[in-house]
């Protein structure tokens, strides 16, 4: 699995040709230098600066008057009232939206992805066509799919309302992207449509690595396919499935483009990224916005570290 890479890292190199080993190690660092410098310049440095700006009152209109204000962007008390990000209901609304979006969309994508993967794993005529068709949503740029669905979900001229009205499922057109109760479901629906193929392909790769003979044995013994799925397939592909879910969840937690285009800055769908960018760019509050992105970074970093450590520990036990 992915984390196996990290496993072997600690093992010392062969010591027979120490000169040769030393030279190899030296060239390894030389080979890595351009990457390290680039990452430090385009990721490390901006990250440090962003964290620093979160402790200042920086404003986009004039960055020369930036002053250090400590934790005031996060929390401050002024005449008995609490101010700052940690008591900002809009921020917590964005956090909750993002978590809810991630939970629902990743769950749905896993279930549907599993379904599509099982279909693609079956032997039937036209399998190639399905595989090709399924790749299309994945290949369409997020912005384009947001606009496509924005048009299909249009309250007056949208084809989705038209189809549902004709079939008699609804009586009045639905304002999919404008109604605060429905907008998040519209976002989830588009994300599920777009990302299920990715899930399906990852799960399919896991399925294809399973040994055939288990299934032959199960078939000979006359075990019901559903039972085989839950007792054999699912436990066997669990590691691959977990990695896919983690990748998707980390991706979902930083969602920006789809929500920005489909529902713009409506509070009912605002994610952490949309909130942070709004503070930074639209309201010009660079300090406050940086504090928000720092919190967002900390949340995702914590989750990543937990996951990687958990994966490493688990693989360590198996080895």
């Amino acid at each position: 699995m992915t984390f196996a890479v990290l496993q072997r890292s600690g093992s010392p190199g062969k010591t027979h040709h120490s000169d040769l080993t030393m030279e190899k190690i030296r060239s390894a660092w030389l080979f890595l230098l351009p990457m390290i410098i680039t990452l430090a310049a385009v990721a490390g440095w901006p990250l440090i600066r962003t964290i620093w700006l979160g402790f200042t009152n920086a404003n986009l209109t004039d960055l020369t008057v930036t002053e250090f204000i400590g934790f005031e962007n996060y929390l401050s008390f002024y005449e008995g009232e609490a101010y700052g990000l940690l008591v900002d209901p809009d921020w917590w609304n964005a956090v909750w939206n993002t978590v809810w979006f991630t939970l629902v969309s990743v769950s749905l994508e896993t279930v549907f992805g599993m379904g599509v993967a099982l279909i693609l794993h079956a032997n039937f005529k036209g399998r190639g066509i399905v595989r090709t068709a399924v790749l299309i949503p994945w290949a369409i740029p997020t912005i384009v799919s947001a606009q496509m669905w924005g048009w299909m979900l249009h309250d007056q001229f949208g084809v989705v309302n038209e189809i549902l009205l004709t079939l008699g499922i609804i009586n009045n057109p639905i304002a999919w992207t404008a109604d605060p109760d429905i907008a998040m479901w519209a976002v989830i629906m588009v994300d599920v449509w777009k990302t299920t193929p990715f899930m399906a392909l990852l799960i399919l790769a896991g399925l294809q690595m399973l040994p055939e003979d288990i299934y032959e044995a199960a078939h000979v013994d006359g075990i019901h396919p559903v039972k085989v799925f839950f007792n054999v397939t699912l436990p066997l592909i669990k590691p691959a499935l977990l990695v896919a879910v983690i990748f998707r969840a980390l991706d979902a937690l930083r969602i920006f483009d789809l929500i920005y285009v489909l529902t713009s800055s409506s509070t009912s769908t605002m994610s952490m990224s949309v909130y942070a960018r709004q503070q930074l760019v639209d309201f010009q509050e660079m300090g406050y916005g940086s504090a928000a992105t720092t919190l967002l970074f900390l949340i995702i970093a914590a989750l990543t570290v937990i996951t990687i450590t958990a994966g490493k520990l688990k693989l360590g036990e198996e080895a």
């Binding site: 440095w45 901006p46 600066r49 980390l250 920006f256 930074l280 970074f297 995702i300």
Partner: peptide, 14 residues
């Protein structure tokens, strides 16, 4: 894996 928005203001400055 990290969120692009986390470096937005630092990158803007750069």
């Amino acid at each position: 894996m990290f969120p692009q928005v986390a470096i937005l203001s630092g990158m803007f400055e750069l």
